[in-house]
Amino acid sequence: MLQALSECVFPCLVLGIITASLILQNDTVRSFVTGAKEGFSAIFAITPNILAIMLAANLFRDSGALAQLLHWIAPILNTVGIPEGIAELILLRPISGSGAMVLLSDVFAGFGPDSYEGMLASVICASTETTLYTIMVYFGVTKVKNTRLPLTLGLLTDAVVVFLATIAVNFLIF
């Protein structure tokens, strides 16, 4: 039931948008092409960032540094119920959006997108934002110096998401 609902959301949205666009006599193709162009340039613009984080993450993992780090923090992860495979992703998510994308696709490559780890990582990534970056950019246009409260709030909420996501994946998917 839920599965079916999940599957229908995007197709229905597309159907609704295209139909409405037709009725309102909007130039649908031009809109699509303009949007697609923006999408291209958005990814093109962050290509160097993706390369940077891929390089750093691959070296960190291949050198054995990651395994050592995970070995140290494993007891904490086990208590909270986070699989080791997605620990690196959770730590990087608030800091870097492109980094999270790279690590998410690594989780998919390692465990499969439909595995427990894959699902959990997907839900966590989709329900959180690049907290640190957002706070930096948004307060950049103000004279605010003390960003401790929004930062604490943002990171606490991210932790809430991780907790809720484990419950949601256990009950709604598996």
């Binding site: 609902l5 599957e7 997108p113 439909d114 997907s122 839900v123 989709a126 949601a168 709604l172 998917i173």
Partner: peptide, 21 residues
């Protein structure tokens, strides 16, 4: 990213994501 990785059902996460968010 899910469909790029060959997921059987990339959209399976939509309802959980909305609930969690």
């Amino acid at each position: 990213l899910r469909s790029m990785a060959g997921s059987q059902n990339p959209s399976a996460i939509i309802v959980p994501v909305i609930v969690v968010s």
